[in-house]
């Protein structure tokens, strides 16, 4: 299964606004995507509740996984989002 491992770039962690941006993007992906912390169970990336419970902090490595048509592109896009400091972007 295609995977991407990336360190959380947002200084607040995968939490609040960065988490909301990520969850929205994961929900728009053409295939279901999971996210896991090292040694943890994968949880659905399109679930805010699961992402909040994951509690990934700035610098924590997480692994994204997906399978099917468009998985590679979706993973690239989501991995880029995670590596970006989303809290530093101007508010939309």
């Amino acid at each position: 299964m295609p995977t991407r491992t990336v360190a959380i770039g947002s200084t607040v962690g995968l939490h609040a606004r960065p988490a909301a941006i990520f969850v929205k993007a994961a929900g728009e992906a053409p295939v279901p995507v999971t996210i896991a912390k090292a040694g943890g169970s994968p949880v659905p990336a399109n679930s805010m509740i699961a992402i909040m419970a994951l509690g990934a902090k700035h610098g924590d490595e997480v692994t994204l996984a997906a399978e099917g048509d468009g998985a590679e592109g979706a993973l690239d896009e989501l991995a880029t989002l995670l590596a970006t400091d989303l809290d530093a972007e101007p508010a939309s």
Binding site: P44, N46, I49, A50
Partner: peptide
């Protein structure tokens, strides 16, 4: 409302 649409508790 976003929590109510979250797939985790529904699934």
């Amino acid at each position: 409302a976003m929590l109510a649409r979250d797939p985790s508790p529904i699934d």
